[in-house]
Structures are given as C-alpha cells and as structure tokens.
Design a binder for these strands. Structure first.
Length: 866
DNA sequence: TTGAGCCTA
DNA sequence: TCTATAGGCTCAA
C-alpha cells in the first residue's frame, strides 16, 4: 500500500534485524543513519518475546533454504539440461503471447493516511508524523521517514527513533471519503478501473487515449482550484514540474515535499498556451496521467505517483520509480521492457516478499535478469506456479486486463489484547468475535461452511484451527457452536496449564460461489414460483440488513426443502417435508432459496431448534398458522387446486393460462409403493397429467409438490422416464418462445403450438430454434428435440442436485504430489495482482469448478440424499 | 479434500 | 507495547 513498505524491505539482509530495521540510506540524510536506526530498533526489541519469535521464524526460513540447497546439490546436469529445454519452450510461448498494446496506469497516493492528516491539521505540516498507535503504525510522512519511522513499525519503537514524533490515530472514515473523491476522477478515464485498497488503483486507458486524440484543446484544459487554496496553503497548491531524462513530473506537494517549484516558473514545461489559472494537457499517455494527478491534487490537495506501462506488474513498479509525486512510463517496446526489468532487484517486484527474496538470494539471484538466467534451476526447485511466476517477472510480463475483484472467499475478525489466560474470558471473547463476524456476514448476506479459529499465544506463535461443517453458518450461535469446540480443544491441549493468548480471531470461509447462488435462484423451485418471486437470500427492499438477515436466518435455519428431505430420509421419517424434528445439521443450511417454510421463531442455538407453527405457504405466500402439519399441507392442497396452476402460469404468461403441464410425481422416498407403482405406470404409458388430474391421486398435492424433484434413483429410470419426469416437472409453455411446438412423443397427434393451449409434455423445436431451458433459464440453440430434452434432463440432475446441494470448493488446489519434490515458494504468486496470477488463479479455479460441475452432471437426485 | 502454516500486501 | 484483514500457495494426512 504505502511506498514506505517498499522502502522497508528494499534490501533486507539477513536475520531479524533486517525485517525490523532500516534498509536504505534515505533516512540518513537529515535524520538518523542506518546503523544508528538499526541499533535503536535492536535495543528496543532484543529479548522480547516478539524478537524471540522472529528469530524462530528466521530459523525456519533458513531451514527451508537448507532443504532447497540440498535439493539443488542432487540435481544432475542432465536434469538441468532437460529442464532448460522445457523452460525455454515456455519462454517461447510466453514471448508469443506478449501483449504491448495496452496502456495500463497504476496510481498510488503518496503517504496517503499521513498526507490526509497533515492536510487537515496544518500544525502537523512540518513535523514528523505517523498514523497508527503505539502498537502499530500504518504509515508515516517523509519527515518521519528520515528517522527510520515507517509503516508496520510499532509506535513505541518509532518514538525511540524519533522522540518528537506525533502519532495520529487512524481515521478510516476520513480516508474513505478522500479515496472516493480520487476514484471519481479515475472513473472518468477508465470506468472499469481496479481499486486496490484506499490509496491505489489500476487503470486501463487504452481506449480512452484513442478517443482523446481528437479532443480539442478546451476539452483538455483544467483550471486551478482557487477555492481550495486558502491563504496559508496557496503556495502549496501550485503546480510545478521537475524534469529529468526519464520523466516529466508534475510536482508540488505542499505537504510532503520541500522542493516544489511552480509550474509557471518551470522552464522545462512544454505544454501549450494556457490561461493564467488553467493548464492544458496533451493527448499522450504521459499527459493524461499528469492530468489525472493534477486533478487529484486540485480536488484533494494530496499528491499521487503514477506508473504507465503495458501491463499491471510493470505499471506498479513504475509508480514506485519516481515516488513521491512523480510518474514514469515504460514505452511499450519489448527491448525497453526487458531493459527496465534487467537490473531491477527482485524485491521491487510486487509479490516477492522477504522470504522469497532471501531464498532466491541464497541461489545467487538478486536481480530480475538473474532470475531469467537461473530459470532452469528454479523450475526444478520451486513449484510450478512459482517458477512460472518468476519467468513472467524476468520477461516483464504481466496482466493486461483489469478484472474486478472476484467473489469474496472469506471473512474474519480478530483482536489483539493483553494476555488472557482463563477459559471463561476466552470463551466470552470468542463469542464476542463470533457476534461481530456474524453481523458482518449478514450485512453481505454470506454463509460459510468452514469456521477457523486463530490464536496467537504470548510467545507470538500463531495457530489456526479450522472445522468444516455440513451446513453453512452465519449467525453468532452457529459460528460460536463451531468456534467454541475448536477453542475447547486448544484449551484441553495445554491443560493443566492455562492457554495464554494475546490474539484471537474467527474466520468463516467456504461461501457459495456466485454461480451456485445463481443456480439457486434459477432453481426449479423459483421456476415454479414464477411471477411471485420470493427470494429469501436477497435483502428485502425497505428493510434493514439486520431485519433481512434475521428473517433470512430464520427462514434458512429451518433447512431447505432438500435438507428436510435428507433429514426425513436419515430419520426414516414418514413425514416428507414439514418435519418437526429436524437433524441439527439440516437446520442451518441456507444454501437454497427454496425453503418453503418460513418460521417466525428464533432459533436460539444449534442444539435446540424447534419448528414454529407459523408457516409461509409456498403457493400463496401467506402466513399460515397451523397447529399441525397436516392442516398446513391441506392448505397447500387447496392453494394448489385453486390457484397455483392458473396463477403461476398466468403470472408469467398470459398465453395458455388455463392450461398447465405440471405433474406432481410421487417420490420413491415418501410415497407408498402402490402409489409409486401407479405413477410409474402412468409415466410408462405416457400419460401426462395436469396438476388437477394428479390431484386426484391418493397422495396429497402438497406432499407431491414437495416431491417433484424426488424420484426413482437414476439407475431405475429408463431414459424415457427420466425425460418424462423432466418434462413433467419443468414444462411450462410460457417459457417457450412463441411459436415453439409442444408435442408428445407418444402421441404426435397431440402436438400443438404454444399459441394454442396445450397440456403436452415435451418440447419440440423447430429448425434452429432457440429454446429456453426452464431449469437453468439459459437459451439452448437446438435442432433436435432429443437434444433439448437431454439438456433439460442434465439440468435437472446437475442443476438441482449438484448445484443446490453440494458446495463446490472454489479453490481447486494444485496437487501436492506433483510438486512434492520441490521447495515451496509460498504466497508470492497470489499476492501479486500485477502478475495477473491472482486473477488467473481465480479464473483457473473457476474453470476447474465448472469442469467439476459438468463432470458431476451424471449425479442423480438420490445422490443428494446419501 | 481438509487442515495447518506460511507468504504477501 | 509489534495490527488487522484477506487471498492464495504448499504440504501432509
């Protein structure tokens, strides 16, 4: 985030000191010199538990290095040669894919938090300040940096380095507002720009540049903001320029820099004629970026640095090149890119942290060109993801498109405190964290299956303990039920000694993917509810999050339709759907929006849930007070007989409103054999019944309604039966394109056009007809009825069984065995957005996930109940 | 596949 | 007196 962070790690040598100490000589100019700073830091930390832990961690890194070196020793020249060929093949491929056509910009606000604080409090202007607390600083201004005060440094140590340092507490609300102002400007240049935190963003201005080429001068003229230039600050808001061989910088920082000169006074400014209080910017990328920075400064009175390059990785490094308040561009030519990267220290590359730096240094790799030279060796020592990443870096390759952040993967909350060592306090804190987390989760409407407890003991050793439960959780009670068990295990593990901790955190992950949620929304149930959508998962308009979430949790805590089916099966219950005693695992799964029953009672704890007697009818959506389930089922029967058919069809399509093709097939699970046989016979004879007809069967419609998706196991079904079921369940003429033929394979004479009323049970497509699958709601181009029916079958199996019930693990992990002989280089790939690895990683997992889904499409309904 | 630990920003 | 949060990778079981 802050350039200070980069400074900190510029040249970490060995050991702990480096992590904590100063690593460049900038500080020495007017503040303290490097040695003195390191000495003070060492005196302040040595002997502390933190320091001891740092030593321990350092030892572990050394062990990893040792292991790597042993591995290296075993590599034969033949292996190396082979690897070289393999890697060079990839180099060729990468070269071919090199894209220099994009203009990517990275904008980075200078010492953001500190600059905001200084702007708002002129008294701080000439003082060394840092933002944060005595425990930890988030950033510091450039005065303070001269004393070695930097981000990620505890305030008390900073105070030792710079006794007159002013520490300002964090005010995220304020930074957020400023950030919003900056983003408004950025959006004008790239509406799809990618913010990275509050103070950084990537823009793709390729298209914008083309457009701007034809802009008249007046459209490129910007005026100085005299309003924001108060008397005292006037000299600060000037525009200045400093020129050097590499760049042409608009500079001015009133707040951070002392060497600003006025733009008007600058002889190297070559821009065109400008009015006294305005400035005209050109059409090149450099000019556009200057304009952006000018506008940011005029609007916020803060400065930004920027990098311009053909990809995100390079752009990010460029923004650091002339920081603060500068910009730098890499011309989009292969050789220029390679030259830029050549002597660049690897630590400057986003995503390469101190550990990776140290490991590479052990191999004699310090610069990016060395990274390239050792590519074959690296491919043998590091994981595939790692060495691919290294190769990309050494070739100056990175992502050329900006993707918005993907779906959230986890949410957590943690707290640091002075030692807590009693179980009572620990459980109490744990609950508190769960409460906070539950609120956050509910604000975003998230539920996850994995709960992770994080503990840091007084020796700074961090432990995480996770547990994955069958049903998603989101309420305080649900999360706490899992977390307290994890905590209990840890307390027991050290017993009879007390567990002495200084940090506790709770995380929930394993959320449903967006895709899975989409499937939910398009589930057969929603389909059947067409026109009267009630989506339990969405916040209700006009209601607070809290209200929505409460309702949501109430609804979902009853378990979805499928959960109840599963519960019923597990318990061998005769009651198919509205079971009063539900397995606790089923109670908390909110995956499906298909919950028919909405209860109004609170679920106090995971252990003791009972079903309330107020139900929401899935047909009329009215609350029904029922003393027993039969009564409620009777109500649904009435609704079905009287309203569902006409209503549901009528709402979604006024054509054929009098007809429907829904048939409620009995389930093998919950319907007696006789009834099942009867329905099976009906299917086999191709009898297609309307709901009203089916209503005459011995089983109640309500029960059958709940059984639509439950049928004979796949193996027991003939293809034709499956299709029949699919048709029975999903056919509604209203969803078909006008003119689509509906027909009956068994009775072709019954085939009718949708224009006319039809109770037929399958689709017949015209040539090249596009049919809308009633299950997935996607258009299916098909020339064959068979194909389309097959698609519907697959959707029914896949969409409903898989998508609704099984949570797909979005993180498809790389095989451990594949890389088992490699030394892991952890983390650096993913953390580097500029490499595109984070994005591509996401894309990969998504595509794998899709693949998994498609391969699972053969799964059948009954699998769910297993 | 899951859990734990680690790396990075 | 050494943070808080999130994402992703690796390795082992």
């Amino acid at each position: 985030m802050e350039d200070i962070t980069k400074e900190k790690s510029n040249s970490c040598n060995d050991g702990v000191l480096l992590r904590m100490g100063l690593n460049d000589n900038k500080a020495g100019m007017q503040g303290l010199d490097k040695e003195k700073i390191n000495k003070i830091i060492m005196e302040a930390t040595k002997g502390s538990r933190f320091y001891e832990n740092e030593l321990k961690k350092d030892k572990q890194v050394n062990q990893r290095i040792e292991k790597m070196m042993q591995l290296k020793e075993k590599i034969t020249s033949q292996q190396l040669l082979k690897a070289q060929l393999q890697v060079d093949k990839l180099v060729l491929e990468l070269e071919q894919s090199r894209n220099l056509s994009c203009t990517i910009v990275h904008i980075d606000m200078d010492a953001f938090y500190a600059a905001v604080e200084m702007r708002d409090n002129p008294e701080l202007k000439d003082k060394p300040i840092a933002v944060g607390s005595m425990s930890m600083l988030s950033t510091s201004n450039y005065h303070a940096r001269r004393y070695g005060v930097r981000a990620a440094m505890p305030g008390f140590i900073a105070k030792k380095l710079c006794p007159h340092l002013t520490i300002v507490p964090l005010n995220f609300e304020k930074y957020g507002k400023v950030s919003k102002e900056v983003r408004e400007i950025l959006a004008e240049y790239d509406p799809n720009f990618m913010p990275m935190g509050l103070d950084e963003a990537y823009l793709n201005i390729t298209e914008y540049l083309e457009e701007r080429l034809n802009w008249p001068e007046d459209k490129r003229r910007w005026y100085f903001n005299t309003e924001s230039t108060t008397g005292n600050d006037k000299q600060d808001i000037n525009m200045s320029a400093k020129c050097n061989s590499n760049e042409d910088v608009l500079s001015s920082s009133p707040l951070l820099f002392e060497d600003a000169t006025s733009l008007a006074d600058d002889p190297c400014d070559q821009r065109g004629p400008s009015a006294a209080n305005s400035v005209v910017f050109g059409t090149s990328a450099e000019e556009v970026v200057k304009e952006i920075r000018f506008r940011i400064e005029q609007k916020t009175r803060l400065t930004a640095s920027a990098g311009i390059a053909p990809n995100t990785m390079l752009a990010k490094m460029c923004s650091d090149y002339n920081k603060p308040n500068g910009q730098y561009r890499i011309i989009p030519e292969r050789q220029v890119v390679l030259d830029f990267v050549k002597d660049l220290p690897i630590r400057k590359v986003p995503g390469i942290g101190k550990v990776t730096e140290k490991m590479l240094k052990a191999l004699g790799i310090v610069t990016c060109s060395e990274l390239y030279q050792q590519r074959a060796l690296l491919s043998l020592l590091f994981s595939e993801a790692s060495w691919h990443n290294f190769l990309g870096i050494s070739l100056g390759l990175g992502s050329t498109h900006l993707e918005k952040d993907g779906e959230r993967k986890s949410m957590s909350t943690e707290r640091t405190f002075s030692e807590i060592n009693t179980a009572e306090e620990q459980y109490s804190l744990c609950r508190e964290l769960c409460r906070d987390l539950a609120q956050d989760l509910q604000k975003e409407g998230l539920k996850g299956k994995t709960v992770t407890l994080k503990l840091k003991n007084v020796n700074f050793e961090v432990k995480t303990r996770a547990s994955t439960v069958p049903s998603s959780v989101c309420t305080e009670e649900e999360i706490f039920a899992v977390a307290k068990d994890l905590l209990g295990t840890e307390i027991d593990a050290v017993s009879p000694h007390p567990l002495r901790i200084r940090l506790m955190g709770v995380r929930v992950s394993g959320f449903l993917s967006e895709e899975e949620r989409k499937y939910q929304q398009k589930s057969i149930i929603s389909f059947l509810k067409s026109g009267k959508e009630i989506n339990f998962l969405r916040p209700e308009p006009g209601k607070s999050n809290q209200e929505s979430c409460t309702k949501k949790s109430e609804a979902t805590s009853q378990g979805s339709f499928f959960d109840k089916k599963r519960a019923a099966r597990q318990q061998n219950s005769e009651v198919p759907f509205l079971n009063e005693t539900v397995d606790k695992q089923q109670l908390h799964d909110g995956k499906s929006s298909a919950s028919f029953v909405e209860e109004t009672s609170k679920v106090p704890a995971i252990q003791n849930c009972t079903v309330c007697k107020i139900f929401t009818c899935p047909i009329c959506f009215e609350e029904q007070r029922s003393s027993n389930l039969k009564e409620f089922n009777r109500h649904i029967d009435e609704c079905l007989a009287g309203g569902l058919v006409n209503d549901s069809v009528g709402v979604s399509n006024d054509v054929n409103s009098k007809e429907n093709t829904l048939v409620f097939l009995p389930s093998c699970e919950n319907v007696n054999d006789e009834e099942y046989q009867k329905s099976k016979t009906d299917q086999l004879t191709g009898t297609c019944q309307s709901a009203s007809t089916s209503d005459n069967s011995s089983s109640s419609s309500a029960e059958k309604f709940t059984q639509i998706l439950v049928n004979k196991p796949h193996e027991e079904r003939q293809p034709s039966q499956l299709s029949d079921m699919a048709r029975n369940v999903c056919i509604k003429q209203c969803l078909l394109p006008k003119g689509t033929l509906l027909g009956n394979t068994d009775h072709p004479e019954k085939t009718e056009n949708t224009e006319a009323a039809s109770s037929s049970c399958f689709f017949e497509a015209k040539e090249d007809n596009v049919l809308v699958c009633p299950v997935c709601n996607l258009e299916q181009k098909t020339t064959s009825l068979m194909l389309f029916n097959r698609h519907v079958d697959i959707c029914l199996n896949k969409g409903i069984i898989q998508e609704l019930t099984e949570k797909k693990d979005c993180h498809t992990k790389t095989s451990g065995t594949e890389n088992s002989n490699r030394v892991g280089s952890r983390g650096q790939q993913c953390a580097n957005p500029s490499q595109g690895t984070k994005r591509s990683g996401l894309a990969t997992s998504q595509s794998v996930s899709k693949k998994a889904k498609s391969s699972n499409s053969k799964h059948t309904i009954e699998m769910f109940f297993k």
